[in-house]
């Protein structure tokens, strides 16, 4: 197996793990961790495609990954802020208990 397909396989597994975590966990923070895993799987893909692609001298993939890490950090900051704000009200971060609106 070529190095590129190894990396792609790892990234796909990471994405699957993140997806499973985001879908099955009921704790808001664990769901957030699952989503971060999905984003990092995409970053790993970008780096692998860049390094083993036809133009490793152009820094496209690397730049993309750097920006996406920064954006993911901003997103996590907002997400944790929202988790704290809901915890103040309901004293729980369990998504099933948070969910009051129905219909």
């Amino acid at each position: 197996m070529s190095p590129l397909s190894c990396y792609l396989l790892v990234a796909a597994l990471l994405f699957a793990v993140g997806l499973a975590g985001a879908l099955t966990r009921r704790n808001a923070i664990l769901v957030l961790i699952g989503i971060e895993l999905m984003l990092n799987a995409a970053n790993l893909n970008l780096i692998a495609f860049w390094r083993y692609g036809p133009h490793p001298e152009a820094l496209t993939g690397l730049m993309f990954a750097v920006f996406s890490i920064a954006v993911a950090a901003a997103e996590a900051a907002v997400g944790l802020g929202l988790v704290i704000s809901i915890y103040r009200h309901l004293r729980t971060v369990d998504l099933d208990e948070i969910s009051r609106m129905k219909g």
Binding site: F15, A22, M38, N43, N45, L46, A48, F64, S68
Partner: peptide, 12 residues
Amino acid sequence: GFLLYGIALIFG
């Protein structure tokens, strides 16, 4: 997450 993974594959 899906969108970013899709973009990564487009890049690949």
